[in-house]
Design a protein around this nucleic acid. Structure first.
Lengths: 252, 252
DNA sequence: CGTACTATTGAGCGCTCTCAAAACCAGTGG
DNA sequence: CCACTGGTTTTGAGAGCGCTCAATAGTACG
């Protein structure tokens, strides 16, 4: 909490000319000067096209990447050619956090549509964070947040039915779009059914059937990649239904 | 990489009188002086008994905790009284990393057997890390590692069969015990079948049946909580078998 | 206007869950 | 020492969810 000119969230957004820098900043604690220094190390967003890689499994880790526009999927290619989709990343979200430890990317990242991606060289970010405590704190928070999200996903995959998984997925998209000022009820999915099903640990056919069923039940309208959520509340109910399957007591 | 007296891994272990400090340190980059300062902020390990809480869901986040001896389970209690087991933590492992962001513990941690737990006040650790770049780096790595582990677990729950899950669980225990210098093939499980099944997203009965089957197949011997792994290689094969279910190609 | 891919729909099967009961274990008090 | 009790673990039988296989429909692109 450096005393000098602490900037507001809005000022911050303006200050971030070339990148979704607000992802890395908190609305408090960073001075305009700090933001400028941060801005300096962020490389200009380069536009990537559908199918382009942001980074590949096995590459040496050098930078974090922030999605500015578009969307990215991360996935772990398995030897036999199959892949496990690990996540979908929307504007404002950071990818590459899992590679810090081993200094090698354990997964690949591919853009799903034409996207602008900012590169943040990690070593320089690290240096900078040594000198700006609130930036350091923000990075700790970011990493911690990622852990929290993984934990939620873990719960989803471990304990929830196909229905609950798809509902949770759609609600997650909805909330993240809302956060970026986009419509939380009317959007296009940039990923295929196959990718969704892979991500959710389901078969493509199951996902397809569920979309149809949700539509029949009036929860949403779906046409190809275009989704319109009609009853967010009902979907919340589906997700919250049962957190744990058949759980009697538990001592310990 | 401060030039002065950089200590070795062994020296480090010796220097850590009251805690598994090596978890927080890297064998390189920290001077003896650094380690002492780190040691100063770590509170003496207090012994907890089976069923005691390290922290509870909803409590304000103040500290990270390092398991020195014994074992801990973390879990997210669900409203209806059920719980979702999030992880089991062995000596040398850190818990609480997911609470940094929200400054509130989103899960609870309970010791499974008599255990010694070190407390590391996070704000002091954070301060210290501002002044010791290599400590900062190590914390980034720790957080990143946690993300990587969650990702692996995610893959496990999303895509693997009951058989593969239990094998992966046992191998994970085995590897972690080996890392601490304990027998990787002969050990006692401090958690109940119920907790294992909950963790793996399976029914208790399924886990029980699998233990029996693994034993029949000569993979292990099991008696109550005592497990003896007889064929680590075969178990590795089971886990690696199929990373992704029914995955044809995938374009994009 | 085909070609290739993606999405949907249908039928059948298998893995894992659920329900139910028995076996086993640990601790308690007679 | 043994019966009693509450708990955990094991074992068995049956059902259902979601997967697999297969075919059809719809869509994008050359």
């Amino acid at each position: 909490m450096t005393a000098s000119k602490v900037i507001s969230f809005e000022a911050l957004r303006v200050a971030c000319k070339n990148c979704s820098l607000d992802t890395l900043c908190l609305p408090v604690g960073l001075t305009l000067d700090d933001v400028e220094r941060l801005d300096d190390i962020v490389k200009r967003a380069r536009p990537l096209h559908r199918g382009d890689y942001v980074f590949r499994n096995g590459e040496r880790f050098r930078s974090l990447y922030v999605v500015k526009t578009g969307s990215v999927k991360t996935f772990a290619p398995s030897p036999e050619g199959g892949e496990q989709v690990l996540g979908f990343h929307l504007p404002g979200e950071i990818i590459g956090l899992d590679a810090i430890e081993k200094e090698t990317h354990a997964c690949s990242a591919k853009v799903l549509e034409t996207s602008a991606i900012c590169e943040v060289p990690f070593s320089r970010l690290e240096e900078l964070s040594s000198n700006i405590p609130s930036l350091q704190h923000q990075i700790y928070r970011l990493l911690s947040k990622e852990i929290g999200q993984d934990t939620e996903m873990l719960l989803l995959l471990g304990k929830k039915s196909a229905e609950e998984r798809l509902a949770a997925f759609l609600l997650s998209m909805s909330k993240r779009l809302r956060k970026r000022g986009l419509s939380p009820t009317d959007f296009y999915l940039s990923m295929s059914r196959h990718e969704i099903s892979n991500y959710l640990g389901l078969a493509v056919e199951t996902v397809s059937r569920l979309f149809t069923r949700f539509q029949d039940e009036g929860l949403l309208k779906v046409d190809r990649k275009h989704v319109e959520l009609l009853d967010l509340e009902a979907m919340e109910t589906i997700v919250a239904r049962r957190v744990v399957t058949g759980d009697r007591q538990q001592m310990t």
